[in-house]
Design a binder for these strands. Structure first.
Lengths: 254, 254
DNA sequence: CGGTCGGTTGAAGCGCATCAATCCAAGTGG
DNA sequence: CCACTTGGATTGATGCGCTTCAACCGACCG
C-alpha cells in the first residue's frame, strides 16, 4: 500500500523530540529534524472536543502532536463539514504557508502537543538547508495525500472508500500489516462520514456489509478487526495506475 | 470570491518571464521571482493532446507554462480518471517535492512552456531567501486549492460544482468580473466532468439548466456568457465559513 | 457523402441520502 | 441500585440525484 491517505504524516522516523536528552540541554546543537525544533517547548494537554486552533484565525503557530489524535476540517456557511484529514501522534501541523489557518484542528482523544511560533519556526528552518529540505518534502507528502483524497471523493463508491479508510487507519497503527489486525478507530461515525464524503448511515451500512461478508469483525464500534486483508484490498483498489488506455478528450484546437 | 480553485496559480503578479529584456542578457542578475528563473530556457511548443510528462515518471523537471492550458490528472488502474486541476498561462508546475510525477499534465490547447531541471531549480531557489519564500507560499496556495476541491467533491451537489467552476474559470480570465463576462472554456465536457467528479451528461444537463434559468448563455459549447453573476454566486455558495454551530461529534474518551 | 466525435437530451435504474425507529452503553439523579 | 436520560450506532423504508444506457444532433473530415 503506497497510499499515504493522511496528511501531515511524518514517516521519516525521528524520535528526537521524544528523547529530550539530545536537544533540551543548553542551545539545541544544530537540530537535525523538524520535530526536534519543538523539543524545548512545553507540552500542552487538551481534552476532546477542544480545538487547538480555528479556521480563519491568524496562523500564528506551528504544532507537533505528541499523543492522541485530531480531526482537521473545514466547514461551509450552512454548516456542512468536510474533514480533510486525521492527525496522529508524531504529526506536524500547519507547515504550509498561509496568513490564516485554513482549517480547524480539534482533539478527538485527549491529546498532548507542543507549539512553536511561526516566526521562530521559520527562522529556525531558514538556518539549515537540511531542515528546509525536510519541510519541503513534508509539504509534498501533504499534497500527495490531498490528491489521493480528491480521487477518492470524485471517483470511488462508498464501499471502496470505507475499505480504503480501514486499511489506512490500520497501516497508521501497525506498519507491518500481516495477520488479522485489530484497529482502534477513535473517531465517531460522523467523523468518518465527513471524511469520506458520505453519511453516518452509509458508513454504518458499509461496515455492516463488510462484517457480514467476513472481511472484518468488531469489538465495539471503535475496535475493528481486519480479518481478510486481501479481500479488503481487493475492494479498495483505489490506487492510481499509470496506464493511459482511456480515450483522450481532445481540446477544440486538436 | 476568495476561492482559489485552481492549483498552481501564481496570482502574485510577475511578468518577468514575459519580458526577456531583464533576465536573458548575460547571467540573471539575482532573480527576483520564481518565474524569472526560467527566462533563459528555450520555449517548447506542444499540440494537444500531448503530455509534457506522465504520472509515475521520474520527476526530473519543473515547468513554467507560457501559453495555452493543461489538464492535470491521475488515473486509476481501471481507467477512472480524476482531473486535479487545470493549469493556465503563467502557472508553474511540479513545485512540490517528489521522486516521481504525481500526475500527468496534458495540453488541452496548443501550449508554449519552458522547463528547468529540478536540480538546477532547487539550486537556484536555495541561493535566495526571497525565492525560497515564494516557493513555500506558492505550494501553500496549491494546498489550499486542493482542500477547496476536497470540500467541493465531498460535500456539494452537481449544480453548485458547475456554478463554482464557471465562476472560477471566469475569474481566471477576467480578474475584475463586473458586467456579463464571456468565458472561453477550452476543455471538453468530459474534462469538466472528471474535474468535478460527475459525468458528461450531468455537466451538460446542469449547463442547460443554468441556460434555461437565464443565468448564462452560450456561443457554442466553449464560449459561455455569465449573465447573472449574483445568481451564480448564490448557487455556488460553497465557500467555507468559520462558524462552528454544528454539533460536535465527541470522541469516545470525552 | 458517410463516418466520427463531442455535445445534448430522454428514459430508466441504482446508489446513496433522507427520514424515522430502535438499540445499546454510559451517565445522572432519585 | 435502578429509572431515566442522552448520544452514538444500527437498521429499515422511501425518495431523489446522479449515473447509465441510448438516441439524436451538428460540426468537422476524409
Amino acid at each position: 500500500m503506497d497510499d499515504a491517505a493522511f496528511m501531515f504524516a511524518c514517516p521519516g522516523g525521528d524520535q528526537a523530540s521524544e528523547n529530550p536528552l539530545s536537544d533540551v540541554i543548553a542551545i539545541p546543537p544544530s537540530p537535525s529534524s523538524l520535530k526536534s525544533l519543538f523539543a524545548a517547548q512545553v507540552a500542552e494537554r487538551y481534552s476532546p472536543p477542544r480545538a487547538i486552533f480555528w479556521e480563519g484565525d491568524p496562523a500564528t503557530h506551528v504544532f507537533h502532536l505528541l499523543e492522541g489524535c485530531l480531526r482537521v476540517y473545514r466547514t461551509m456557511e450552512d454548516g456542512r463539514r468536510a474533514i480533510l484529514c486525521f492527525s496522529y501522534a508524531g504529526d506536524l501541523l500547519c507547515l504550509s504557508a498561509c496568513e490564516n489557518y485554513l482549517f480547524t484542528a480539534e482533539a478527538v482523544t485527549p491529546i498532548r502537543f507542543r507549539r512553536l511560533s511561526r516566526h521562530r519556526f521559520n527562522d529556525l528552518v531558514e538556518e539549515r538547508a537540511n531542515l528546509r529540505f525536510q519541510l519541503h518534502a513534508e509539504v509534498g507528502r501533504e499534497m500527495k495525500a490531498s490528491q489521493d483524497q480528491i480521487i477518492r471523493l470524485g471517483r470511488t463508491a462508498a464501499e471502496e472508500r470505507v475499505a480504503t479508510f480501514l486499511l489506512n487507519v490500520a497501516q497508521r497503527a501497525d506498519a507491518c500489516m500481516m495477520a488479522p489486525v485489530e484497529v482502534e478507530v477513535p473517531f465517531g461515525r460522523l467523523d468518518i462520514a465527513d471524511y469520506l464524503g458520505l453519511t453516518v448511515e452509509t458508513i454504518s451500512r458499509e461496515i455492516s456489509k463488510l462484517k457480514h461478508d467476513g472481511l472484518i469483525s468488531m469489538n465495539g464500534p471503535h475496535r475493528i478487526v481486519l480479518q481478510h486483508l486481501r479481500g479488503l484490498r481487493e475492494i479498495a483498489r483505489t490506487e492510481a495506475g499509470h496506464e493511459q488506455k482511456r480515450q483522450t478528450n481532445r481540446g477544440p484546437h486538436a
